[in-house]
Computed example of a mutant assay.
Amino acid sequence: MRTDESTWCAVPPGTAVLAERDRIGRELDDRVTRPLFTIGLGLHGLAARVPSGQVGQRLRQVVEQLDEVIREVRETVFDLREVEGDSGPGLRARLLAALAIRTADSRVASTVSLPGDLDRLVPPWAAAGAEAVVVAAVGDVLRHARATEVAVQVRAGAELRIDVTDNGCGLPADEARAGLRELACRATNHAGALEVGPEPGGGTRLTWRLPLPGAQAAPDESPL
């Protein structure tokens, strides 16, 4: 294959490396993370129906181990994709696709509220973290909260704010410590914050905030 030398020289240094990292991240997400997540949901549902005993206890241990593997793979994927200049689908499309995939085979009804111009308001360095937060938070609701409803609201302006609420029984204390640690780190690394607490009518609210320097006031959200 012939390569035009002038065009090749004009490519910014590191562009090929960043593109390859993004490609690997997408393939890992499509071929590893999502199938693992589906398997985990199936095992979690099976474990809930197995009576207490040696087999049931072992099955629940396997589910916990798989949850940890999913978290580690997911962290690797988002680290790979957390680069400037993503030429693929925007954050809004990625969030909608991620939620559709993760709730398709569950009995949990989901609602989403996103700004229409979310892709313009959220820079690439913050978008990767936002996607990771929504995927992790919704995944924890599906696996542990015993909820029938989950709602995701994203607002962007002076800060990026993500609220994930459910009507379930709440997260176990050990799961909250392990599963939310990476989300808290993603926020605090950029002067943000993570808050998790009970909803007044029952269930749990997770709020993740991240300052967006130089941003304007938040526009109205577009409910979907």
Rank of each mutant, 00 (worst) to 15 (best):
V83E: 11
R146P: 06
G45W: 11
L66D: 00
I39C: 12
A176W: 05
V108L: 14
G201L: 15
G42C: 07
L28S: 05
V73H: 01
A48H: 15
Q54Y: 13
R71I: 02
H190L: 05
D119A: 11
W8E: 13
L212T: 08
S222L: 11
A98D: 09
V150S: 04
S6R: 10
R177K: 12
T204L: 00
V108Y: 05
R31A: 15
I162H: 01
A104D: 15
R146D: 13
D79N: 11
R102E: 10
H190K: 01
C185R: 10
G14W: 14
V55T: 08
L183M: 02
A145P: 07
G40H: 15
R49M: 11
S110P: 13
R205V: 08
T204C: 00
E5Y: 10
D30T: 15
G214V: 09
D22E: 08
T103V: 15
P200C: 05
T33G: 06
A16D: 07
L180Q: 02
A132H: 10
L91S: 00
Q54F: 14
E5L: 15
G192I: 03
W8V: 05
L66W: 02
L36C: 12
V63Y: 08
L80D: 00
L114T: 04
V196E: 03
D79T: 13
Q54L: 13
R94L: 05
A191I: 02
D220Q: 13
L28M: 11
W8R: 10
E20G: 09
L80I: 00
A19E: 11
L59N: 04
V11H: 11
P124S: 12
G116E: 15
P200N: 04
L118G: 02
E68H: 14
M1D: 06
R177Y: 07
E5P: 14
L160C: 02
A145Y: 07
A217M: 12
R92C: 07
V17G: 04
V152N: 04
L96W: 08
L41A: 01
L194C: 03
A98L: 06
V55Q: 03
R120A: 14
D166H: 03
V50E: 09
V11S: 11
A47M: 05
A16R: 09
A97N: 09
L142I: 03
D86R: 12
G197E: 06
V133L: 00
G45C: 09
L28T: 00
R60S: 07
R34K: 08
L43T: 03
V63S: 08
R74A: 12
L114A: 09
L91W: 00
P13W: 07
P211V: 06
A98F: 06
V17F: 05
A104M: 14
G85Q: 02
P35F: 15
V196S: 03
R177T: 11
F37I: 04
V73S: 01
G197Y: 04
L18W: 05
G88A: 00
E195K: 03
A193C: 08
R146Q: 11
G88Y: 00
R71N: 10
T7V: 13
L171E: 01
E82P: 00
V135L: 14
R60F: 08
A104H: 15
